[in-house]
Every structure is written in structure tokens, then in C-alpha cells.
Design a protein around this nucleic acid. Structure first.
Length: 569
RNA sequence: UCGGGGGUGGUGUAAUCGGCAACACACGAGGUUCUGGCCCUCGCAUUGGGGGUUCGAGUCCUCCCCCCCGAGCCA
């Protein structure tokens, strides 16, 4: 990590700059702001961070890293005491750190600036640029006009400076009730941009604040607090999402008229939208509150906490954010891209082991009674002489039910009556008998013979065996719970639907209670990642302590070409 | 309808004085293989529409169309 705490992946030269990198590069080259770049990531502590926030984090820390002495601040935008909680600031800190970023000492809170912000407001009043409005909320709305009609001046718009000063002081002192009055900027009630029609600066809130407690009875509005907080921190490039474009004129107005110590500028980019999920804080909140998921860190959630528990490596999220780019047009990124990047990272450095999810018993009839072979199996098949673990092989195994077909389709390479397959790293086996339950007709056991010449898995005569199956020795198997996750929604853009909850995928979670693991998997710690060969990537869940048995979450399945072939025919 | 901002393949980005539309994902075809994984090869868009300038336009001009954001004492 560099001194400015930015960009853990710095090093690779980007093929091309995005439009914000262009701007920053030009500013650095021109020596603007003394060649310094200061950005900030400004979450409101009223919910958990999701992958859309990751895009912003990667962007902001990355831009700061373009200058040798650049820095990205973490600033909590906590100006609304009614929705913000300490629990969320802690979760946000954890998530940013986990993602791989270090903001150093630069952890700030808008609430730390309340006194200075108040002073800016007083100065505005003294300049005749702000006034206390005593209209009711309804009248304020009514008199704001609309897109076609200009607003009309408040009857209180021309109060004297001294009266405004007095009223503002009394607002702060708590002399008024919520809704009695507000402080407003005196701009232009006929402005074509409705946000400029005398916007609110302060409103009265009697709710306790998570940091300032009951010290304040008034709280600054975002449009006032944000640009001035940026200025106080010396932020040079204030990067936000597109919906704030409308607010930029106001941002500039406050910077120009409050004369803060620095002159930050706001730039907007398109927020991330991801297919088959929702990324709005409100909707995520609904999923949690409605019990549709198991909490903010449910592995199906697009939250950073959820992705972490799912087993997604932070480096994969960073790479995903770099890959999707930054632009100004609305977008809906295919979740398949995220899945690809995740697989790519996992494939590179995840050990391989074997587990059987839906066990089917296999008896090797010509196996010597009681014989157990300890097979040395590599953790990385591309490095057969590298790290390995011992896997016991005996005469009774479990294989995947899906790997047997009584009546195999075309191109079937797996088990079927009379077919020979390879048990990975173990031996060649031919199925000779199928035992079925006389009552249900269900296949309960396979019987057959192995080729003793093939111990280790190689064909003694070089004969071709197309199918290689994973397996677990029945006597040595460890029982485990395995959770298979799928997309949370069945439609690509659930957020656009009238009722997004109607598109929830009823099969987004399948719990397998009695999966069979090879012994080496018994002792994995929470957070450890492993590939179950031929199945996918899994991550040990902390629930193992509570359930007193291994619990694995499927991060993502392997690409399954056979499933496609099978679907087509 | 007023103000602000956008339209390049199925998806997301790129094309830095106007000079062969590039990369990744997805999809399709094939190869390789002790994971039907990984890997390799090949295929897949004339840039929202019409006019104009130019030897040459995704890039410039012009008219039109479509999409997003804005009327919280939320951020």
C-alpha cells in the first residue's frame, strides 16, 4: 500500500484514462491546487456499503493516487440525526478496510464541522444572502412553484439582518419547534433550476445525533454542508454520482458566497447498476427488514459484507470496478462479468479438494477388505509436485448422484451401467450393477470393479477414459452443511419493476445438510476458500462454530459446459 | 412542457489534431485435458435518425427522436 493509502493494485498502466482520470491528470500536469489531489469517499452512516459504493471507493482512492501526495479522506456525511447510527459507521470502516484501502488519519465527520458550518451560515445572513423563513413546510413547497411556474417570494424574505441573526440564534438554542422555521439562502425564487429557488440551509430537528448528542437543535442540509465540508478538508475533486448534477450549481454558489479556505469542484459519474440484483439502499433495507434475506451480510446480498461472507476476494471486487470503467451514461452491468472476475481470481489461488454434495454410494467389489490407500493429491493440479494433502481411498465411496445416469444421454462421459470412469487421482472403475430401492425405484447404490493397475488414476494401457469424477471415501467422509447460492432475483433489472420483491428468486438459497467432505476439509477456518473439484468455489462460514460442523458457502460454481450441452438436447 | 445530463455490438468500456471502430464479458463453433474447470483458435457492431462540411466523420455543423435526473425541512 502506498503512502497515500490508495490503490492496492497500483502498478499496471491503464490502457486509457476514464474521463475523471483525464481531468485529474490534466490538473496535476497544470499544477492546479499545487499539483495536489484530494478526494473523499462520503458515505452517510445509515446503511451498509454495497458494490456500487465499491466503485466509488476504487475511483476516489485511485484518483488520489494519481498525485504523489494525493489523499482520499473517509468522511461520514452525518447531517441527518434521524437515520444515522454508530453501528453503520463501524460497518463502513470495516468494509472499506476489507476492500483494501487505508484512509490513514483522514477520518472525518460532517458533524465535526457543525460549529464552523454555523459560522458560515451567520456570515451568509450578515451578507444578506440568507434569511429565516417562518412559512409552514406546505407553504414553502407551494411557493417554490414547479417546472413551468416560477416560485414566489416568502413574506419573510426581507427580514432585517439583525432580526435574522436573532432568529437563527434562537433556532440554534432550541426556542422553536420542528417545522416552525428554517434558514434559507436568498438566491432567486424564479430560477429555472428549482434547486436554486432559495434552498434550505438549516432545519430544526430535536432528535439526538449519534455523535453530537443533543448539542444541536438545528442540522445543516446536504447542499450546504457538503461543499463546505469539502472545502474545509481541502478536497480538490469532489466526485459524486449523476443525480447530483442538479446540485452542482448550488454547490458552486455556496463555495462562492461562503468564501471557504479552498475551492473544491464537483464532478459526476454514472453509478453502478448490476443485473439480477438491486443496489439502492432503500431496497436493500427492505430485503433485510422484510426477512427476505438473512441480514446485511447474507451471502446473496450485493453488500460488501455479503460478498465477503460469500467468499468473494476483495481483489476481485477491485478488478471488477476497474473493468467496468467510469462514464456518464446510465448502465446495467451484466452480473456475469462480476462472476467471471471472481472465478478468475479464485482459479488463480484457491486450493482444490473434493466434496460430494448429493452422495450416492459406490461399492468396489474387487477391493481388498479393509484396504485403505492414502493418495497424495496436489492442491493445485497445474502444479502436481507442489503442495498436496493425503486423501484416503477405500472400497466404499460416495460420488455425486448427478454423475450417474441409468439411461445416459448422448455425449455422456460419466457413470452408467457398464461404463468405465476415472475416480480423480484414484483409479479406473467400471460400473457393473445398479442397486435400486424396490419400493421407490430410486438408485441407492452402484457396484462395480476397479482396475488394480490404475491406482493413482492413470490408465495402464493408455486407454482413453473421458469421464473423471470426484469422490469421497465413505468411511472417512466428514458431514457438512453446504449452502448453494443463486441470483437473488429472476429478472435482469428488478429495480425497474413496480414491485421488485415480486421478482425474488425462490431458489436463491439451497441448503444441503449432509454433504460429504474429504477429511482434510474438516478443519478449515471461517473465511477459508477452497475449490470443490468439478463443483465450484466455496468459503467456510463462521456458522460452523454455532452448528458444530463444517459449513460452506458456494461463492460461485465452475463454468458448466455440460449443463449447456444437456439443456440443448 | 422548464432546467440539467446522456445515446458506440446482447452487456460494459475504448478509439487523446477528423484517418482501417479496439478490449473484456456474454453467446456460437472447434482444439486440448486425470476438473465437461483452466488454457488455445475462430466467429459475432459501420457508432439513435435525417441533412450538411470534408479526399475522409463515432469524432465538426444542423434539424429531429429516445432515455435519465430535478418541484424532501433526505443524501
Amino acid at each position: 500500500m502506498s503512502e497515500n493509502g490508495a490503490s492496492p493494485d497500483a502498478g499496471e498502466a491503464p490502457a486509457s484514462y476514464n474521463f475523471l482520470q483525464e481531468i485529474v491528470a490534466a490538473d496535476v500536469a497544470a499544477g492546479s491546487h499545487g499539483g495536489r489531489v484530494v478526494t473523499r469517499f462520503p458515505p452517510e452512516p445509515n446503511g451498509y456499503l454495497h458494490i456500487g459504493h465499491a466503485k466509488s471507493i476504487v475511483l476516489n482512492f485511485g484518483l488520489a493516487a494519481m498525485s504523489p501526495h494525493g489523499h482520499c479522506n473517509l468522511r461520514f456525511d452525518d447531517t441527518n440525526p434521524e437515520t444515522e447510527e454508530t453501528e453503520f459507521v463501524e460497518a463502513i470502516e470495516d468494509d472499506v478496510r476489507w476492500l483494501g484501502y487505508d484512509w490513514g488519519d483522514a477520518e472525518y465527520y460532517a458533524s465535526d464541522y457543525f460549529e464552523r458550518l454555523y459560522a458560515f451560515a451567520v456570515a451568509l445572513v450578515e451578507k444578506g444572502l440568507a434569511y429565516v423563513d417562518s412559512q409552514s413546510p406546505e407553504d414553502i413547497r407551494e411557493n417554490r412553484g414547479d417546472f413551468h411556474r416560477p416560485g414566489s417570494d416568502s413574506p419573510y424574505r426581507d427580514r432585517s439582518v439583525s432580526e435574522n441573526l436573532d432568529l437563527l440564534a434562537r433556532m440554534r438554542a432550541g426556542d422553536f419547534d420542528e417545522g416552525d422555521c428554517v434558514l434559507r439562502a436568498r438566491i432567486d425564487m424564479a430560477h429555472p433550476d428549482v434547486l436554486m429557488r432559495d434552498p434550505l440551509i438549516y432545519r430544526i430537528r430535536k432528535a439526538p445525533h449519534h455523535r453530537t448528542g443533543t448539542a444541536w437543535a438545528i442540522y445543516p442540509m446536504y447542499d450546504f454542508a457538503h461543499p463546505l465540508s469539502d472545502a474545509i478538508e481541502g478536497v480538490t475533486h469532489s466526485v459524486c454520482t449523476l443525480e447530483f448534477q442538479n446540485n452542482r450549481a448550488l454547490y458552486d454558489w455556496f463555495v462562492a458566497n461562503c468564501e471557504p479556505p479552498a475551492e473544491p469542484h464537483q464532478y459526476e459519474f454514472a453509478r453502478l447498476d448490476l443485473s439480477y440484483t438491486v443496489l439502492s439502499k432503500r431496497k436493500l433495507q427492505q430485503l433485510v427488514a422484510g426477512g427476505h434475506v438473512d441480514g446485511w451480510d447474507d451471502p446473496r446480498m450485493p453488500t460488501l459484507a455479503g460478498l465477503r461472507r460469500r467468499g468473494v476476494p476483495p481483489a476481485a471486487i477491485r478488478e471488477f470496478c476497474e473493468t467496468i470503467g467510469v462514464a456518464k451514461r446510465d448502465n446495467l452491468v451484466d452480473v456475469a462479468l462480476l462472476e467471471h472476475v471472481v472465478r478468475d481470481h479464485l482459479n488463480a489461488d484457491t486450493p482444490r479438494m473434493m466434496a460430494v454434495l448429493r452422495p450416492l454410494r459406490v461399492v468396489i467389489e474387487n477391493w481388498d477388505d479393509g484396504r485403505v490407500e492414502l493418495l497424495r493429491c496436489p492442491l493445485d493440479p497445474d502444479d502436481p509436485d507442489g503442495a498436496a494433502r493425503d486423501v484416503p481411498l477405500s472400497g466404499v465411496l460416495y460420488v455425486e448422484r448427478d454423475d450417474f445416469a441409468a439411461d445416459p444421454p448422448k455425449k455422456w462421459f460419466r457413470l452408467a451401467p457398464g461404463r468405465e470412469v476415472r475416480f480423480r487421482y484414484a483409479c479406473l472403475f467400471t460400473c457393473t450393477d445398479v442397486v435400486t430401492d424396490p419400493g421407490t425405484g430410486e438408485v441407492v447404490e452402484l457396484r462395480g470393479t476397479w482396475d488394480p493397475e490404475s491406482l493413482g488414476g492413470a490408465a495402464p494401457d493408455g486407454r482413453r477414459v473421458r469421464g473423471t469424477l470426484h469422490w469421497v471415501s465413505a468411511a472417512h467422509a466428514v458431514d457438512a452443511e453446504v449452502r448453494l447460492y443463486d441470483r437473488l432475483f429472476t429478472t435482469a433489472d428488478p429495480g425497474a419493476a413496480d414491485d421488485f420483491l415480486a421478482h425474488l428468486n425462490p431458489e436463491s438459497l439451497e441448503t444441503i445438510h449432509a454433504a460429504k467432505l474429504e477429511p482434510a476439509l474438516a478443519t478449515t477456518n471461517a473465511g477459508e476458500r477452497v475449490q470443490f473439484e468439478r463443483l465450484g468455489y466455496f468459503c467456510a462460514d463462521p456458522d460452523r462454530d454455532r452448528l458444530d460442523r463444517p459449513v460452506f458457502n458456494r461463492t460461485i460454481g465452475l463454468r458448466d459446459t455440460w449443463a449447456k450441452i444437456a439443456t440443448k438436447s
